[in-house]
Amino acid sequence: MTTVDVHGIALGVESFGDGDAPLVLLAGGTTMLSWPDALCERLAAGGRHVVRYDLRDSGESTTTDPEAPAYTLRDLAADAAALADLLGEGPAHLAGIGVGGMVAQVAVLDHPGAFSALTLVGTRPVAPGPPDDDLPDHDQATMGRLFTRPMPDWTDRAAVTEFAAGGAEILGDDPVAARAVAGRIWDRTPGTAAPVQMANQMGMVFSRLDCAPRWRERLPEIEVPTLVVHGRRDRFFPLGNGEAIAREIPGARLLALEEAATRMPDEALGEVSDAMLSLG
């Protein structure tokens, strides 16, 4: 892992595979560790230069004030385009997961020349907040359980990882895997202040971003091959969100993972990597 400078912002990155191979750029949601190591390794073995990166205010990227971010969703999209230009010799395959999927949608719309393919995992076509009437909202019973829990002591690594494991169990994800990833995220977080930890562990900075104007109506403008991956058991962004994206982007393929919730389970990574590699 290292950092690269993109228009005055440090972005944490990690590379896999041959640096001269076609670039697959993985936008974190919000940290790069949202993307499983095994998926990165499979893509690299398939002949790709894989780079996963941290969004601003997470991981090794520039952290300033997660409670009052002085940038917008479109700035994050511009980061992706600039990073693709810096790291590759041609248009990149851009992939975004969760809130990183929102970044990826806007990046391909605002900077179409920078990208040759698009993968969107577990995301939706509108900004944080109330969804459009035709999109399923978060499962309210699940959200009630998830967000009424007392916050952990953010200075205590064990407490934070246990909090993450409990959240994963509520969401239908693997708590053992979530605990391990949360520990790795905690180790990379620049400080134990609650806002910084919450930006890294929970992506809460995204709820404070300026995400205007809307982009959903522009999805039919996307012309690159697109894969939409979504868990059938996702209670945070239910499957109807992925189905809407796949309907509205011309030619997009929907890959619904039968046993997945918000995280891609290990047993699905081969299917996901094969589908991503098939985009070119």
Results as ranks from 00 to 15, higher is better:
45 A>R: 15
211 C>V: 02
180 A>P: 03
123 T>R: 04
44 A>R: 13
87 L>F: 05
233 R>T: 00
70 A>G: 13
112 P>W: 11
166 G>L: 03
12 G>V: 07
66 P>F: 08
158 A>Y: 00
77 A>N: 11
269 L>F: 01
2 T>Q: 13
30 T>E: 00
149 R>W: 06
151 M>E: 14
177 A>T: 13
42 R>C: 03
124 R>N: 13
137 D>N: 08
256 A>R: 06
127 A>F: 04
272 V>N: 06
61 S>D: 03
153 D>Q: 01
7 H>S: 13
164 A>S: 15
67 E>H: 11
109 L>M: 05
203 G>C: 09
252 A>T: 10
167 G>H: 11
167 G>C: 07
218 R>Y: 11
244 A>E: 11
34 S>I: 02
39 L>H: 06
70 A>C: 11
152 P>H: 07
100 G>H: 10
160 V>Q: 03
273 S>M: 01
237 F>Q: 09
112 P>A: 07
18 D>Y: 07
89 E>N: 12
187 D>M: 11
193 A>L: 09
217 E>K: 15
238 P>V: 11
167 G>N: 15
279 L>C: 09
152 P>C: 05
26 L>C: 13
223 E>Y: 05
12 G>F: 08
129 G>M: 06
88 G>N: 00
205 V>M: 14
119 T>Q: 08
213 P>K: 14
9 I>N: 04
112 P>V: 02
47 G>A: 07
228 V>S: 01
101 G>R: 05
161 T>P: 00
208 R>Q: 11
277 L>T: 01
15 S>R: 14
83 L>P: 00
237 F>L: 12
210 D>C: 07
137 D>K: 02
222 I>V: 14
103 V>N: 06
193 A>Y: 06
216 R>V: 01
139 D>E: 13
181 V>R: 15
15 S>T: 12
65 D>M: 10
43 L>G: 09
120 L>S: 10
62 T>D: 07
202 M>P: 00
77 A>M: 14
153 D>I: 01
168 A>E: 04
70 A>F: 08
278 S>I: 02
88 G>A: 08
114 A>E: 00
19 G>H: 09
23 L>R: 08
280 G>F: 13
197 Q>Y: 03
218 R>Q: 14
27 A>V: 14
16 F>T: 04
209 L>W: 05
82 A>M: 03
224 V>C: 10
210 D>V: 11
147 F>N: 06
94 L>M: 08
119 T>I: 08
